[in-house]
Structure formats: structure tokens, C-alpha cells
Simulated assay, not measured.
Amino acid sequence: MHVLVTGAAGFIGYHLTLRLLAAGHDVTGIDNLNDYYDVQLKKDRLASIASAPEAGKHFRFVRLDLADNAGLDALFTHENFTYVVNMAAQAGVRYSLQNPAAYISTNLTGFGHLLECCRNHNVAHLIFASSSSVYGLNTQRPYSVRHNTDHPASLYAATKKSNELMAHAYSHLYRLPCTGVRLFTVYGPWGRPDMAPHIFAAAIVRGQELRVFNKGRMCRDFTYIDDAVEALARLVPLIPTPDTDFDTAAPNPAASSAPWRVHNIGNNTSVELNTFISLLEDAFGQKARKTFLPMQPGDLEATFADINDMNERTGFTPKTHLRDGIARFAAWYREYYKS
């Protein structure tokens, strides 16, 4: 297979690229290397990919922004991609309150360009990252792909929901097979510095104030990176087909009469933030200096993934216990930051 991974210098894109290369596939990675967070971390991820034994002639990196329609089309014209996995996005719920234009450009305009390229160049399957944040104001848990997702609580969530709808339209109109994956709080080595595990680790190691929102009572379905990537890798060759049982009078939100599907990728467990912090303290052997603050706009009180559909489709079940995953993250953090 020749796979295009967008956002290859990102956290999940990096790990997925290594997983696909290890499986013997050719991978082209693209990324715009924006400065939303430390660019050096992204460059170090790319260097790590390039040094992998499987990389050799099987990996190529192109610096490219999805908003560059002409550049993207030229890449698709030059290459012959079997599958496309879109991990590129402007991430972050809170940042979407400060800089909404970045989300419009990458998550909507850029994704539209990608859909057009997949359609025009006969890509066999597009897998794209959605988010657990699409469940928004829904309080029915665990979150099922059969639940309503029409009430997002942030612009970031709204753009991810829009990606699902845009992909469905292309699947319906042009029969482009698409699978959306709603990722639940992925953590682990090489993680993003703007995410809670990284922020908490830095505060603990440096003895700095750790700002804990909603008094640490928020719950998250923390998903270890290896488990998330295993689920993604299994989905890549599983090209969706129209659901012959799809009922237009009572439509199932997770299926379609088009070749389109959506799945949750999570750990199927909801853990309170205070517990997560306690495990980080154990892993680093230091106590956090916590300051409790109120709930932030756009945040969800809890996430909890129902992964039954994913399990039935791929046989995937998460295997990494939270304590073990945090220990691996802490070991990487110490080594990378020499702390």
C-alpha cells in the first residue's frame, strides 16, 4: 500500500507513520509544521521516523499545508495513494476560543481540499480524525456513535462534526469510501505539549503551580497512543460499504446508505482527572502544587467511549492499563527533556 498520512509530524500522525512503515507499507507524510506548539518537537518526531530501519526508501516527507489547494493537488497527481489518513488539524478546544480563523482554514477549508483530491485521484479509502468533543452537550454516557452529536460546545468540536458531514456528502455523491474516528484523549510518549498529561508533567517536575479546572472532577477516557494507533491501522484496509439495512425513516447516525462509517477510538473507561494526576505524581515521584479553578468554557465534564462498534469491525480492544501508560509517558518525558 502507498499511504498518505497528513499531520505526520504530529503526535498521532508520527506514531501511525511508524506503525505503517513497520507493516511494510510506503508512506508519504505531510505537515505544515506550524508553531501552535514547539516546532522542534515536530522536527524531532520527523527525525525519529527518518532513523527508523523501515523508513529508507519507504518514507518521504513533504512540508505542505492542506490549505494549499494547488500544492496538495500536485502531490496527489505525482503520487498514487491507495489510502489517505488525515491526522492534520488545528487542535485544541481552548485555543479555538482565541483564534477561530485557524480552525476555519485548516479544519474546514483544508479538509475540503483533501476531499476533492481523494475524489479526483481515486483514493480507495479516506480515514479522518474526528474527536470525542463532537458529543458536546450530550450527557448520555458512555458515548455511542449512535448518539446525537448536534450540539457542540466549542468551535473545534463544530469543525470536527463538520468534517464528518462533509465526508458523508462526498461518500453519498461520489461514492468515496470514508471512515471517521472519534479519538478520546490520546496520551503517551511524544505527546502534544498543549495537552493535559504534558502540562501536568511539566508542572510536577518543575515544582510549578498546576492549574486544575473543575476541581479535578472532570473525567476523561484516556487512551494510550499504541492502542489508538492499532485501531487506526486495522481500519485502514477495511473499506466501508453501504449499509444494506440503513433505514432512511429512522437513520442510524453511525452508518449510511453511502460507503461511510464513524467509530469511537477510546479506552472504554472514564477516569477522574484527580486520579490521573495522582498516577503522574507516582510516576515522577513528586507531588503537584495544585490550584483548583472553575470549569473552563468549551470543556466537557466527562468523556467515556462505547467502542462496541469498533470491536465488532476490527476486533480491537485496548490493552494498556492507565498506570502502565503513564509510566511509559513519564520515562519518555524524563529522557526527552533530560529532567
Results as ranks from 00 to 15, higher is better:
Met295Cys: 11
Phe61Arg: 01
Leu183Trp: 05
Asp65Gln: 10
Phe11Ser: 01
Tyr36Cys: 11
Ala55Phe: 09
Ala302Ser: 14
Thr320Trp: 07
Val205Ala: 08
Ser131Tyr: 04
Lys57Asp: 14
Gln40Pro: 01
Leu165Val: 13
Thr303Asn: 07
Pro297Ile: 12
Ile277Cys: 10
Lys290Glu: 12
Asn214Gly: 10
His15Arg: 15
Gln296Ile: 14
Tyr170His: 06
Thr82Asn: 11
Pro259Asp: 02
Thr149Asp: 07
Lys215Ser: 13
Pro251Cys: 01
Met218Ala: 15
Ala258Ile: 13
Leu273Val: 07
Phe81Asn: 01
Leu293Pro: 15
Asn80Cys: 12
Pro189Arg: 15
Pro237Gly: 03
Thr291Tyr: 02
Thr185Leu: 15
His125Thr: 00
Phe304Gly: 05
Asp324Ile: 03
Gln296Ala: 15
Thr159Met: 10
Val93Ile: 15
Thr77Phe: 11
Arg289Met: 00
Val212Phe: 02
Arg261Leu: 14
Ile199Leu: 10
His125Leu: 03
Gly285Met: 01
Ala50Met: 13
Tyr170Trp: 04
Glu209Lys: 08
Cys219Ile: 11
Ala88Met: 04
Thr82Met: 06
Ala22Phe: 08
Glu230Arg: 14
Trp332Gly: 03
Leu46Phe: 09
Ala55Gln: 07
Met295Pro: 15
Glu209Leu: 11
Arg119Gln: 12
Thr28Gln: 05
Asn311Cys: 07
Gln40Cys: 11
Leu114Val: 13
Ser144Lys: 09
Phe329Glu: 02
Ala288His: 05
Leu72Trp: 07
Thr269Ser: 12
Leu16Thr: 08
Gly298Lys: 03
Trp190Ile: 08
Gly71Val: 01
Gln286His: 11
Asn308Ala: 15
Leu165Phe: 11
Arg220Ala: 06
Phe284Glu: 02
Pro53Trp: 05
Ser171Gln: 09
Phe59Val: 04
His151Ile: 04
Lys43Leu: 12
Gln286Phe: 01
Glu301Lys: 11
Ala8Gly: 00
Arg234His: 08
Ile30Gln: 10
Thr241Phe: 10
Asp38Asn: 04
Asn264Gln: 01
Thr291Asn: 09
Tyr95Ala: 14
Asn252Glu: 09
Leu75Lys: 00
Thr109Val: 13
Ala102Pro: 09
Pro53Ala: 06
Thr6Phe: 05
Arg119Ala: 15
Asn308Trp: 14
Ser278Ala: 11
Ser257Asn: 14
Ala9Glu: 04
Leu33Ile: 13
Ala201Glu: 10
Leu16Ser: 02
Glu209Val: 12
His78Trp: 02
Ala101Cys: 07
Pro294Asn: 09
Asp150Met: 02
His321Cys: 12
Lys42Thr: 06
Ser48Gln: 12
Pro240Ile: 07
Ala55Trp: 13
Asn311Pro: 04
Ala250Gly: 00
Leu114Cys: 09
Phe128Gln: 11
Phe316Ala: 03
Lys338Thr: 13
Leu210His: 06
Trp190Met: 03
Gly266Gln: 04
Tyr174Asn: 14
